[in-house]
C-alpha cells in the first residue's frame, strides 16, 4: 500500500485515504460526501486507479451523495498481490463486495469503465438489489472486442516473456495508456507520475498484466462463464442507464460495445447516449463533467 502520496499527486488528488482489509489485502478507497447506505460507486480499469475520477468525485459529493471510488488490488494506493492468480476477475469482484459491506453500502449507482464493467456488473450479479443505476463508458462485459482478438497491436503485447517485459521492466503499457487520454492530460507530468505510481513504488505491475490475459477470447477461457452470466443478466436489470462514451476509442468502439449494451439493457435506449467524438478510452479524462452529470442523474432516479 502507498500511505503517502507524492506532494504533487496529493495536490491533484486531495481526498482522505480510507482502507479496508479484503481477502488479506489492504485496499484503498475514496469515501467522500455524507454518510449513507446509498453510494455512487466509481470503478476504474487498467492501468489506472481512483485518480481517474479526481475531477468527478467533488462534483457528485457536493450534490449530497456519498461517493466510493476503490483502487483494485495492485492499483493506485492498494496492496499488490504476488501471483497472477490473485488478480482473477472473480477475486476482484469478491474484494469489491467486501469493500461495499465494510462501508455499509446497500444500494449503488455505478459508473464502470474498462474492467470496471465486468467487476461492477459482477458485483451486481452477486448482490441482487445492489444495482440502482448503471453508468457505462468504454467498457465491456468480459468478452474481448475485435481489438482484443488482434495479434498486433494487442495480443502480442502481453504474450510469453514480452508480457512481464513490457508491463513491468519496460513500462511500455502503463506509459502507453496516455494514448487513450487528451493530449494536455497525457503531457501533464503530475498525471504521468500518478499513473506510474504503482509501478514506480512496487517495481512491478502484475495487476496490469493479469487484466489483458483475463479477457475472454473464446468459450474455453476462464472469464467466459462470468461474461456469459453478465450478458444473460443485462436483460433483467430494469434500472436507469446512462452512457458516456469516447467515440474515438479503438478498444471499445461505440457501435461494437456500447450500442450492444444499450440494446441489451431494458432501459439502455431510454436516454440519448453521450458519445464524445474525440473521446478515447479514458473517457473520465475527456469528459469529467458529463460523467458527473450522468451519475447525478442516475443517483436522483435510482435512489428515489
Amino acid at each position: 500500500m502507498i500511505e503517502e502520496l507524492p506532494a504533487e499527486v496529493s495536490a491533484a488528488f486531495p481526498f482522505s485515504p480510507h482502507w479496508v482489509d479484503a481477502g488479506g489485502f489492504r485496499l484503498h478507497y475514496v469515501d467522500e460526501g455524507p454518510s449513507s447506505h446509498d453510494v455512487v460507486l466509481l470503478l476504474h480499469g487498467n492501468p489506472t486507479w481512483s485518480f481517474l475520477y479526481r475531477k468527478i468525485i467533488p462534483i457528485i459529493a457536493a450534490e449530497g451523495y456519498r461517493v466510493i471510488a476503490p483502487d483494485f488490488l495492485g492499483c493506485g494506493r492498494s496492496d499488490h498481490g504476488f501471483s497472477e492468480e490473485q488478480y482473477q476477475i472473480t477475486h476482484h469482484i469478491r474484494r469489491t463486495l467486501s469493500l461495499l459491506d465494510a462501508v455499509g453500502a446497500e444500494r449503488a449507482v455505478m459508473f464502470c469503465q474498462d474492467w470496471g464493467g465486468p467487476i461492477g456488473m459482477g458485483c451486481a450479479l452477486a448482490r441482487p438489489g445492489l444495482l440502482c443505476g448503471l453508468g457505462l463508458g468504454n467498457t465491456f462485459w468480459g468478452e474481448g472486442s475485435a481489438f482484443h482478438h488482434r495479434v498486433f497491436p494487442w495480443r502480442a503485447l502481453h504474450g510469453p516473456v514480452v508480457g512481464p517485459l513490457f508491463f513491468n521492466r519496460r513500462s511500455v503499457f502503463v506509459d502507453g495508456a496516455r494514448l487513450g487520454m487528451p493530449v494536455a492530460v497525457a503531457r501533464d507530468p503530475v498525471v504521468q507520475r500518478a499513473y506510474r505510481l504503482p509501478l514506480d513504488v512496487h517495481g512491478s505491475f502484475l495487476a496490469a498484466l493479469a487484466w489483458p490475459r483475463a479477457i475472454s477470447l473464446g468459450p474455453d477461457h476462464p472469464t467466459q462463464p462470468l461474461a456469459d452470466a453478465i450478458w444473460d443478466a443485462l436483460v433483467r436489470w430494469d434500472v436507469p442507464v446512462r452512457f458516456v462514451w469516447g467515440g474515438a476509442d479503438p478498444v471499445f468502439p461505440w457501435e461494437e460495445q456500447g450500442l450492444q449494451l444499450a440494446r441489451r439493457l431494458p432501459r439502455g435506449m431510454e436516454v440519448e447516449p453521450v458519445v464524445i467524438p474525440e473521446g478515447r478510452h479514458f473517457i473520465q479524462e475527456f469528459a469529467p463533467d458529463a460523467v458527473a452529470a450522468a451519475m447525478l442523474a442516475l443517483a436522483r432516479e435510482g435512489f428515489s
Binding site: P153, A156, L157, V162, R170, V172, G176, R178
Partner: peptide, 26 residues
C-alpha cells in the same frame, strides 16, 4: 520473446516487438 513468437509461427512470427513498443510509446 521474438524467438518464441517466431517458433509459434503464423501471424505471430511477423510481429516486430521493437515496432510494437514504439507504437505503444505514442
Amino acid at each position: 520473446a521474438q524467438a518464441i513468437y517466431r517458433a509459434r509461427g503464423g501471424e505471430w512470427a511477423e510481429v516486430d516487438l521493437e515496432r510494437l513498443a514504439e507504437v505503444w510509446s505514442g
